[in-house]
Deep mutational scan, measured.
Amino acid sequence: LRTVEMKKGPTDSLGISIAGGVGSPLGDVPIFIAMMHPTGVAAQTQKLRVGDRIVTICGTSTEGMTHTQAVNLLKNASGSIEMQV
């Protein structure tokens, strides 16, 4: 596991798309980074990659989380965001 910290302002975009989660079209698979926009906050860290499994978001485990719950957690996060992948 590695921990990645990002700074995100209220109008900034992380610039990632995620897939997976409980009840997702892919089945109940762990949440992972499906796409990254090169100008997004996540890409700027140069520490995240497409395919990385997201284990925690700001200390909250993604295990058993639906896709929608994970998306909302990421969208609503601002300031210092910590992810374990």
Results as ranks from 00 to 15, higher is better:
Leu1Glu: 03
Leu1Gly: 05
Leu1Gln: 01
Leu1Ser: 07
Leu1Val: 14
Arg2Lys: 11
Arg2Ala: 08
Thr3Pro: 02
Thr3Leu: 10
Thr3Met: 07
Thr3Gly: 03
Val4Asp: 10
Glu5Gly: 06
Met6Val: 09
Lys7Asn: 14
Lys7Gly: 04
Lys8Leu: 15
Gly9Ser: 11
Gly9Cys: 07
Gly9Arg: 10
Gly9Leu: 08
Gly9Asp: 11
Pro10Tyr: 05
Pro10Arg: 10
Pro10Lys: 12
Pro10His: 10
Thr11Lys: 15
Thr11Ala: 13
Thr11Val: 09
Asp12Ser: 09
Asp12Pro: 03
Asp12Asn: 11
Asp12Tyr: 02
Ser13Val: 13
Ser13Gly: 10
Leu14His: 00
Gly15Lys: 01
Ile16Arg: 02
Ser17Met: 13
Ile18Ser: 02
Ile18Gly: 00
Ile18Thr: 03
Ile18Gln: 03
Ile18Met: 08
Ile18His: 00
Ala19Arg: 08
Ala19Pro: 03
Ala19Trp: 08
Ala19Ile: 09
Gly20Thr: 03
Gly20Met: 00
Gly20Arg: 04
Gly21Met: 01
Gly21Tyr: 05
Gly21Cys: 00
Gly21Glu: 00
Gly21Pro: 02
Gly21Asp: 03
Gly21Trp: 03
Val22Arg: 12
Val22Tyr: 10
Gly23Ile: 00
Gly23Phe: 00
Ser24Thr: 06
Pro25Val: 10
Pro25Glu: 13
Pro25Met: 09
Leu26Asn: 12
Gly27Lys: 06
Gly27Ser: 03
Gly27Ile: 06
Val29Asp: 05
Val29Phe: 04
Val29Gly: 08
Val29Thr: 10
Pro30Trp: 01
Pro30Gly: 09
Pro30Tyr: 07
Ile31Gln: 00
Ile31Pro: 08
Ile31Phe: 01
Phe32Thr: 14
Phe32Val: 09
Phe32Asp: 05
Ile33Thr: 06
Ala34Trp: 07
Met35Ser: 15
Met36Ala: 02
Met36Pro: 01
His37Cys: 11
His37Thr: 14
Pro38Arg: 06
Pro38Val: 01
Pro38His: 02
Thr39Pro: 04
Thr39Ser: 14
Thr39Leu: 13
Thr39Val: 08
Gly40Tyr: 02
Gly40Lys: 06
Gly40Ser: 06
Val41Tyr: 07
Val41Trp: 05
Ala43Asn: 09
Ala43Ile: 03
Ala43His: 10
Gln44Ala: 13
Gln44Val: 05
Thr45Gln: 08
Thr45Gly: 06
Thr45Ser: 13
Thr45Asn: 08
Thr45Cys: 10
Thr45Ala: 08
Gln46Cys: 10
Gln46Ile: 03
Gln46Pro: 04
Lys47Arg: 11
Leu48Met: 08
Leu48Val: 08
Arg49Pro: 02
Arg49Glu: 12
Arg49Val: 08
Arg49Tyr: 13
Val50Met: 06
Val50Ser: 05
Gly51Thr: 00
Gly51Ile: 00
Gly51Val: 01
Gly51Trp: 04
Arg53Gly: 05
Arg53Ser: 10
Arg53Thr: 13
Ile54Phe: 00
Ile54Ser: 01
Val55Gly: 01
Val55Thr: 10
Val55Tyr: 09
Thr56Gln: 12
Thr56Leu: 03
Ile57Lys: 02
Ile57Tyr: 05
Ile57Ser: 04
Cys58His: 08
Cys58Met: 12
Cys58Trp: 05
Cys58Ala: 11
Gly59His: 07
Gly59Asn: 09
Thr60Ile: 14
Thr60Asp: 10
Thr60Asn: 11
Ser61Asp: 09
Ser61Phe: 06
Ser61Asn: 11
Thr62Glu: 03
Thr62Phe: 01
Thr62Gln: 01
Thr62Pro: 03
Thr62Tyr: 02
Thr62Cys: 09
Glu63Gly: 05
Glu63Val: 11
Glu63Ser: 11
Glu63Phe: 09
Glu63Ile: 10
Gly64Met: 07
Gly64Ile: 00
Met65Arg: 02
Thr66Trp: 02
His67Val: 13
His67Lys: 15
Thr68Gln: 14
Thr68Asn: 12
Thr68Tyr: 11
Thr68Glu: 14
Gln69Ala: 11
Gln69His: 11
Gln69Tyr: 07
Val71His: 14
Val71Ala: 14
Val71Leu: 13
Val71Trp: 13
Val71Asp: 14
Val71Tyr: 12
Asn72Leu: 08
Asn72Arg: 11
Asn72Ser: 13
Leu73Asn: 00
Leu73Gln: 07
Leu73Arg: 07
Leu74Pro: 00
Leu74Val: 06
Leu74Tyr: 08
Lys75Ile: 07
Lys75Met: 12
Lys75His: 11
Asn76Ser: 13
Asn76Pro: 02
Asn76Phe: 11
Asn76Thr: 13
Ala77Ile: 12
Ala77Tyr: 07
Ser78Leu: 06
Ser78Gln: 14
Ser78Tyr: 10
Ser78Trp: 07
Gly79His: 07
Gly79Thr: 09
Ser80Val: 14
Ile81Arg: 04
Ile81Gly: 03
Ile81Ala: 03
Ile81Ser: 02
Glu82Trp: 11
Glu82Ala: 10
Glu82Cys: 11
Glu82Tyr: 10
Met83Glu: 03
Met83Pro: 01
Gln84Val: 12
Gln84Gly: 09
Gln84Asp: 05
Gln84Phe: 00
Val85Met: 00
Val85Pro: 07
